[in-house]
Computed example of a mutant assay.
Amino acid sequence: MTLRTRLTAWYAGVFLIAGIALIGLNYWLLAEWTPGDGVAMARTVPAELMDPYTGYTAVEAAQLPGDTAVFTGEQIKASTMNTVLWQSIIALLVAAVIAVWLGWVVAGRVLAPLHSITTTAHRLEAERLDQRIELDGPPDELKELADTFDGMLDRLASSFDSQKRFVANASHELRTPLAVQRTLIEVALGDPGASDEIRRLGAHLLDTNERSEKLIDGLLLLARSDRGLATRELVWLDEVIDDEVESCAALASEKNVTFAVQTRRYLVDGDPVLLAQLVGNLLRNAVLYNKPGGSVSVRLDQELIVTNTGPTVPAQAVPGLFEPFRRLRDRTGTAGSGLGLSIVQSVAKAHQGSAKARPNGGGGLVVQVNLPETGVRQAS
């Protein structure tokens, strides 16, 4: 039941209670009325027997015409009270219907500012915080609520701007030292006089440096997707899948993993870079966490489903895989950074989609990503 319906019901209920109380009070006062105890009233009395001042006179029954109907005071009182009661009930029901209609209209006008707040909140995105309510009206509670909401949006917009500047600066400041370190290590390893111990140490440092670069790239990508989409364009998801499968071909060959791809034309309105990262992370995870001679199934129909044949995954551990840095294996045992599925979920949410996973029956994981498909179709 909506708030408007509840308010209307309250208005109508209060009106009915007040109306019933008023009818009860009138009925009680009418019950105290005594229309001339012991006096008979005639429905038709000859004009010459009527008192010109009061309209009534006391006459003997023998003086009345034979067709005159005579009522006692108690009969008149009972008839009057019965008539007043039923007419009051009918009037109350009619007024109650009008009260419900008026209550509905008044509740709608009172709640109109709340609808404005809700509509504004639905239009907001991380990259579009320029919407404001700017409610006009007297300084009442709803005006105060709208102004508070506008103030909160101002603070959020400022916070998101600061975050975007931080991510842009961090992207440069964190990448540059790692690039310099990698170059120095490669130069040292290129020295013909370098000993075997230095070469082993250099190879270890290069591997650590590469892992750090991947971790920073993943964190920056996660931060970017969490902020929402800055721009949108039409992207054929099936083409993105084909490109990413080709990019993962070398890694799959190294791990002795085969791909089985089945797609259809699927158009998405979104960010092509983020969508490529989503698909790429799914495929790389499916290859890295697989077994030698295993396979990766990629199917795109109503949703994107990626299935691998890796080790058995406990059902209770699946939700934790979408958290950053959560993996089933020990961190030092894989080349991943533990951000793959976190990025997949974040990118899916940025595109108004969702991502979920479940264990594969024969071992491995099934990841399902739902991305809203646009109604646009490629010209034939």
Rank of each mutant, 00 (worst) to 15 (best):
R6T: 08
L7Q: 06
T8F: 03
G13P: 03
G19L: 04
I23A: 09
N26H: 10
A31D: 14
R43L: 13
R43C: 05
L49Y: 02
A58K: 03
E60N: 05
E74Q: 10
A78Q: 10
Q87V: 11
W101M: 14
L102H: 09
W104I: 08
V105D: 13
G108M: 09
V110P: 05
P113G: 10
H115W: 10
T120N: 10
A121P: 06
E125Q: 15
A126K: 10
L145A: 15
L145F: 10
M152V: 12
F160K: 14
A170E: 13
A170Q: 13
L178F: 15
R182L: 14
G193V: 09
D196A: 15
I198M: 14
A203R: 11
K214P: 04
K214I: 06
A223M: 05
S225D: 06
D238P: 00
E239K: 02
E246V: 02
N256I: 12
T258A: 15
T263G: 12
L274P: 04
N281S: 03
L300M: 07
L304N: 09
A317L: 06
E323C: 01
D330S: 06
R331T: 03
T334M: 04
A335Y: 04
G338D: 05
S342M: 06
G362I: 05
G364M: 09
Q368F: 11
L371C: 01
T374A: 07
G375F: 05
V376M: 14
A379T: 12
